[in-house]
Simulated assay, not measured.
Amino acid sequence: MRQLLVFHERADAEEVAETLGEWFPSLGVPRVVRETLAGEDDAEDAQWLVVLEGLGAESLARADELAARYDGWREEG
C-alpha cells in the first residue's frame, strides 16, 4: 500500500526522502511531489509529499518518527 509523508516545506520533504533512501536502500530515494491544496490559488499553500511503497510496519514507524522531526505526518494514499 502506498503511504504519503506530508510536509509544508520542500526542503524538509527532500531531506526526509534522502534519509529514507539511505535507511532503506531497497526503496531507492522516494519520490517527492507537490500537492496543491483544493481551492487554494496561492502556490505557497502547496504541500510536499514523499511517496513510500513497500515498507512494513516497523519501517513505517521509523518513517513516522522522522517525519515528526520535520513537523510532517503520514497519510495513506
Rank of each mutant, 00 (worst) to 15 (best):
R10G: 04
A68L: 04
T36N: 13
L66T: 05
S59C: 02
E75N: 01
V6C: 10
A57M: 02
D42R: 08
P30K: 07
G56M: 02
R2I: 09
V33A: 13
P30C: 04
E76P: 00
F7R: 05
V50M: 03
G77S: 10
R62A: 12
E18P: 05
L37W: 05
G54A: 07
D45E: 14
A67N: 01
V32E: 07
L4A: 13
G56V: 06
E22R: 14
G28I: 06
L37A: 14
E15W: 12
G56I: 02
R69S: 02
R10M: 09
W73D: 01
V29C: 07
G21C: 09
E18M: 10
A11Q: 15
A68D: 05
W48G: 09
A38Y: 03
G77N: 01
W73M: 01
L66E: 05
L66S: 03
V33H: 05
M1I: 08
A61K: 08
G21A: 09
F24D: 07
E76H: 05
E58S: 06
E14K: 12
L55W: 09
S26F: 14
E53V: 08
R2S: 11
V51P: 01
G54E: 12
G77Y: 06
E76F: 04
L20R: 11
E18L: 14
E35D: 13
A46I: 08
G54K: 09
A43M: 10
G72K: 02
A38D: 07
A68P: 01
L20A: 07
R10Y: 06
D41W: 11
V51C: 13
L27H: 04
R74Y: 00
D64Y: 01
R31H: 11
M1A: 14
E15H: 15
L49W: 03
R34N: 06
D45Y: 08
R2M: 13
E53Y: 09
